[in-house]
Structure formats: C-alpha cells, structure tokens
C-alpha cells in the first residue's frame, strides 16, 4: 500500500504543544471582524473575490446527473447579464457525480471537488475510503474533500486519524486534499485547533470545517481557530495550507466578515481562491444580488437570479 513509506515522512505532531484556545476571547475577536465596515470599492472587490472562492455544492441523496449538470451551468454562467464576473472556484459533488461534472465543465477552468472517504460520517474501513478516493480522482476530481474519523479523534486515537489522512493524501495523487474536521462534532475549539494541526502535518492541502450535514456547520469562531492553526503551521514549516469554511454561509455580509477575518489573520497571500474557499450553495446568488445593487444602486429581487 505504500503506507509505511509515507508514514516515515509525515510525523504526528506533539498535540500537547498546541496552544489552548479561549472561547470567549475568540468570540470577542470575531465580534471585532464583524464590526468592520466594508463599503464601496472595497465591497465590490470583496464580493467578486467571494464569488471566485465559492465551491458550488450539491451533496444530497437525491442528486442526479441532471441536477449536477444544472449546477455546472450555474458555475459557468453565474449571471451573464453582468459582465466581468469571475467564475466560481469549483463545483463540489459526490464521487458518483464527478464524471457528469467533468463533462459539463469541460473547457472551463473550474475545479471539480469530490467528497470522499465514506462522506459524511466516515464510518467505514480505510480500504473503502481509499477506493472511494481513487474512484473520484480517476473520474476526474481535481480536489478531494475527505472527512476525518471523529470517533477516533474524540477517543484520543490521534495516530489512527493521522494515518488515515496520510493514506488518503497518497491516494489523491495530484488532486488536492481538503480535510474536513466536522467541527460541529468536535465540540470544543481546543479540539478544532489540535485536529487542524494534525491534519496539516498529515499532508492536508486545505482544512475544511464541515460536511454541511451536522449543525453547527461553519462558524466564524471555528474558522478563526483554524486560520490561526494554519498560520502557526506556516510559521513552523513555511508551507501554506488553504482554508474552507463550509455550510451556513449564505449571505454576502457574512462572507465579507469571513474575508475580513482571513485578511487580518493570514494576510494578503491567502486572499485568493487558491487558498480560501467557501463551501456553499446559496451564497452565490446573494453575492450577485449585492453586486447588482452596488452597480445599479437599486435593491434586488431573487426572482432575477437563476436558481439551479
């Protein structure tokens, strides 16, 4: 399996050295981001950047090729009535839908992200998870969103979680690996911080908050803690790791708060789709409405923006 070779390279970090996190302090910092006032040109820039960072997502049991094709159309044609818009960063689908997405997006510079590893629970064997991953990559996924084994993590078996990530990373080949911590199940910000460090040391290209199937999904609090972990990891290793909050970010205002947080925590280098994504399905239309409002000065109706 090649696992041992990889294991020698990746070393489980000493998680006892990961700094503690104080929840109230995090809340206060988040409140400061939320009190930033983003207006005019800064707002337009932010909205466009947000669009370009979206992983347009459909992850439902009822997904069909038809649904995925429509989603891909939206990814390509966000709102053609408005010239000069960026396209989204990726579409995010189940492994069985990757081929459909690939075909629908052919000729466009839009990534195909696939959840894998027995998403969303991750309750399966490593071999099933690796097969899941390889299948998605083979079908054309350029990004893999895996879930960690939360049960193992909560029971303290960090080695197990770490090894799984290392193995999946290897199975990804050239595809980027996003590691979903499912922060809503980790319970405390201390664990979020530890899991973030563990995932990055195991080889994650991105760390991601949530599957979207568990409440709470992404919050600014957990995202801040993960961004700070990314910063610490960067300080230590010099390697940049991306961040993807997913689930629950459906308004422009909230997305702008996230951007402010990113901007003031990791700085300019991370302010691109290469290093930051929003996992969202309905955010794009709200951003489009806001952009239209900025250019026309008139408040918009959702009826004028396509829902796919």
């Amino acid at each position: 399996m090649g696992l041992t070779a990889v294991n020698r390279k990746a070393r489980l970090p000493d998680l006892s050295r990961v700094p503690a996190v104080d929840e109230v302090g995090v809340n206060e910092r988040v409140a400061r981001f939320q009190s930033r006032s983003i207006k005019k040109a800064a707002k337009v820039d932010a909205l466009k950047l947000i669009l370009s960072m979206i992983d347009l997502t459909t992850l439902e049991g009822q997904d069909t090729p038809g649904k995925v094709q429509q989603l891909c159309q939206k990814a390509i044609h966000l709102h053609d009535a408005m010239p000069g818009l960026p396209h989204v960063a990726a579409v995010c689908v189940y492994p069985t839908m990757v081929a459909t997405a690939k075909e629908a997006l052919s000729g466009h510079d839009i990534n195909i992200a696939s959840v894998a590893t027995a998403f969303p629970s991750g309750m399966s064997t490593l071999s099933v998870k690796l097969d899941d991953t390889r299948m998605a990559v083979k079908a054309g996924a350029t990004e893999i969103d895996m879930v960690i084994s939360r049960g193992a993590f909560l029971s303290g078996d960090y080695r197990f979680v770490f090894d799984e990530i290392v193995a999946v990373k290897e199975a990804c080949g050239d595809a980027h690996l996003k590691v979903i911590l499912e922060t809503g199940e980790l319970g405390t910000l201390d664990r979020v911080r530890k899991a973030s460090m563990l995932a990055m040391y195991a080889g994650a290209d991105f760390i991601k908050t949530s599957t979207g199937k568990i409440q709470p999904a992404a919050t600014m609090q957990v995202t801040l803690v993960m961004l700070q972990a990314i910063r610490d990891y960067y300080y230590e290793t010099g390697r940049m790791v991306g961040m993807k909050p997913a689930g629950g970010i459906s308004t422009s205002k909230l997305a702008i708060h996230y951007l402010v947080m990113l901007h003031e925590t990791l700085g300019n280098a991370w302010m691109t789709p290469e290093w930051f994504r929003f996992g969202a399905s309905s955010l794009a239309n709200d951003v489009l409405m806001q952009l239209m409002k900025q250019s026309t000065g008139v408040y918009q109706s959702p009826d004028y923006f396509s829902k796919d």
């Binding site: 040109a41 800064a42 302010m271």
Partner: peptide, 18 residues
Amino acid sequence: MATPENKLAFDGGWGYAP
C-alpha cells in the same frame, strides 16, 4: 515553537474603503 521566519504580509492588497 521556533522563531517564525515565514512572514505574513498585511500591507497592500485589499484595503477597506473609508
């Protein structure tokens, strides 16, 4: 933790309008 040598950049880039 070692002394960070990998610097973050906060100048330039996206700025908040007045």
